Computed example of a mutant assay.
Amino acid sequence: MASTTFTLSRDTFGKLVMTAEDGQVFEGVAPVRAFPIQSPDEGISLVLGNGKEVAWIERLDTLPEPARSLLQEELEGREFMPEIARVKSVSSFATPCTWHVDTDRGETQFVLKGEEDIRRIGATSLLIADNHGIHFLIRDMFNIDKTTRKILDRFL
């Protein structure tokens, strides 16, 4: 189904319920981004627990309220990917090592197990996985401070 004509609500348990234009009700739908880093507001699929797609949304900003707000809430609750603004220090240039960073969600530290946990995403972005599986994003490695860039160069 490739439609954006539907309504969204929450049931008593807080799960999303989608009602299609034809009246068909889908309980427990979950939004999934097709391109979560490069185009987070484009290409969003609403899927059931078994993975079946029940709706496709070309652009989030084309949805009427309250569906847009409900989807944004749900996506924010499901996705946790802090964006690194600055690497303050690393305990060592050999792995495993502890990174002290400033993110868009505050200051934190994490353990980088190996250099293979730093992946390039596109031409300028990096995705760094810590030892707990949390992913940190560096949106543009060429548009950050010199200290951070110098540290990243040692690991890339």
Rank of each mutant, 00 (worst) to 15 (best):
Arg78Thr: 04
Leu63Met: 13
Asp61Cys: 11
Ser89Glu: 14
Asp104Glu: 05
Leu60Thr: 08
Phe93Leu: 08
Thr62Arg: 14
Trp56Pro: 05
Thr103Met: 00
Ala85Gly: 10
Val90Gln: 05
Glu73Ala: 08
Ser69Tyr: 02
Trp99Glu: 00
Glu76Cys: 04
Ala94Phe: 06
Ser91His: 06
Val90Tyr: 02
Gly106Thr: 10
Arg105His: 12
Val87Ser: 01
Thr62Glu: 14
Glu53Val: 15
Thr98Lys: 06
Gly106Trp: 01
Glu76Val: 04
Pro96Arg: 09
Gly77Asn: 06
Glu65Val: 14
Thr98Val: 10
Arg78Trp: 01
Asp61Pro: 04
Arg86Trp: 07
Phe93Asp: 02
Leu63Asp: 07
Ala67Glu: 15
Glu83Trp: 03
Asp104Trp: 03
Asp104Lys: 05
Arg59Phe: 15
Glu73Arg: 05
Cys97Tyr: 04
Ser91Thr: 08
Val90Ser: 04
Phe80Trp: 07
Val54Phe: 04
Lys88His: 03
Phe93Gln: 04
Glu74Lys: 08
Ser89Ala: 15
Ser89Ile: 11
Asp102Gly: 02
Arg68His: 08
Pro66Tyr: 11
Ser89Arg: 12
Glu83Thr: 14
Ser69His: 05
Thr62Asp: 15
Glu76Asp: 13
Ala55Asn: 04
Trp99Tyr: 05
Glu58Trp: 09
Glu58Cys: 09
Arg68Cys: 09
Trp99Cys: 03
Val54Glu: 03
Arg59Thr: 12
Trp56Ile: 13
Ala94Asn: 09
Pro82Lys: 06
Glu74Arg: 06
Pro96Cys: 07
Pro66Phe: 05
Leu60His: 06
Val54Met: 09
Leu75Met: 11
Ala85Tyr: 03
Leu63Thr: 11
Leu75Asp: 05
Ser69Glu: 09
Lys52Arg: 14
Ser69Gly: 10
Thr103Gly: 04
Arg105Asp: 02
Glu53Arg: 15
Pro96Gln: 10
Thr62Phe: 13
Arg105Gly: 02
Arg68Pro: 12
Ser89Asp: 14
Cys97Phe: 04
Trp56Asp: 13
Arg78Val: 01
Ser91Gln: 07
Leu60Arg: 11
Arg68Ser: 08
Arg105Val: 01
Leu70Glu: 04
Phe93Gly: 03
Val101Ala: 00
Ser91Asn: 09
Ala67Phe: 13
Ala67Ile: 11
